[in-house]
């Protein structure tokens, strides 16, 4: 299947700062593609380049197998950095401008305002909106006329917890409808809940990319407490299948190969004369994996 966008060796510098360094990856059709990275890693720069707002120093990108960039952008809904609207115009009038730029009709405005919960304020001027409402309007504009692709840069900025949950749900629903979503965020918990694919950036370099279930191989961790730690730690180190042990206060955190279970650990310790007071399986979060990758 042809990728939605194919990015090849994109580089970008701001003076001496290398914002992006030969970044390449493909975004598969129908995926929810998370672009992750700490602040200053180049996420927004990358999205701005593929939306033609910034000029790359080198490299190239191809939307939809080589469609003209402006025609491609008209099929994409995009929220990049901040909501950008005419302050003196109402939400409704601003959406008319967005629709005209996309060469679409203006009939879809009420639907998208309903989705983002702004129907009652549709005639209020943009400058009277709160930060969260501005963000909602930007998401609404991105949804005009059911785009094939959504590019969302920090879409939950300024939203309250309810708003964040609504956006998460919206992304899930859109994804189910087959819309490809490229989302940059530092809220890893949010990404983890919705993404099928990720690309992780650090200081402009692509650390890894691919399907979440391949890239972020589940290395579950098991927490153990019990008896004398000086005895427990070497005992567990000797156990087959235990690959690493971290000591956090009085808790030992074990990284094990896939076939080791908590039952086996318990039985092993009892066989060595150690009674455990705490035994718990912890799923490794995307955040833990991300921190490991970006702190290397």
């Amino acid at each position: 299947m042809q990728p939605i966008i194919s990015i090849k060796n994109i580089s970008k510098s701001y003076g001496p700062i290398k914002a992006l360094n030969n970044v390449s990856f493909d975004v598969p059709e129908g995926s929810v593609f998370g672009v992750l990275g700490p602040n200053g890693s180049g996420k927004t720069t990358l999205l701005a380049i593929i939306m033609d707002v910034l000029q790359a120093d080198g490299g190239s990108y191809r939307w939809f197998g080589g469609m003209a960039p402006d025609a491609a952008r008209r099929q994409i809904g995009c929220l990049l950095e901040t909501p950008n609207f005419y302050h003196y115009m109402s939400a409704y009038d601003n959406l008319a401008v967005s629709a005209a730029l996309k060469q679409r009709g203006i009939d879809d405005r009420l639907r998208v305002l309903g989705i983002v919960g702004l129907t009652e304020r549709k005639d209020s001027k943009f400058q009277s909106y709160s930060l969260g409402m501005k963000q909602r309007l930007a998401i609404g504009a991105a949804l005009l006329d059911n785009p094939k692709v959504l590019v969302l840069d920090e879409p939950t900025n300024g939203l309250d917890p309810n708003g964040i949950a609504e956006i998460r749900e919206l992304i899930r629903n859109l994804s189910k409808q087959g819309i490809t979503i490229i989302i940059a965020s530092h809220l890893l918990d949010e990404i983890e809940k919705v993404c099928t694919h990720v690309a992780i950036l650090k200081r402009g370099n692509l650390l890894l990319t691919g399907p979440v279930n391949e890239v972020l191989i589940s290395e579950d961790q098991i927490e153990v407490m019990g008896g004398d730690l000086h005895t427990l730690e070497p005992t567990l180190k000797a156990m087959p299948g235990v690959t690493r042990i971290n000591k956090i206060d009085q808790v030992l955190q074990l990284t094990c190969s896939e076939n080791v279970t908590t039952k086996q650990i318990n039985e092993y310790c009892i066989s060595k004369g150690i009674v455990l007071s705490h035994l718990c399986l912890r799923k490794k979060s995307l955040e833990t994996k991300f921190m490991e990758l970006t702190n290397k």
Binding site: M51, D52, V53, D70, A71, R73, R74, C78, L80, N84, F85, S98, L101, K102, Q103, A141
Partner: peptide
């Protein structure tokens, strides 16, 4: 920026 993003 938004004018370009939206397709101009």
């Amino acid at each position: 920026r938004q004018n370009i993003i939206d397709g101009w």
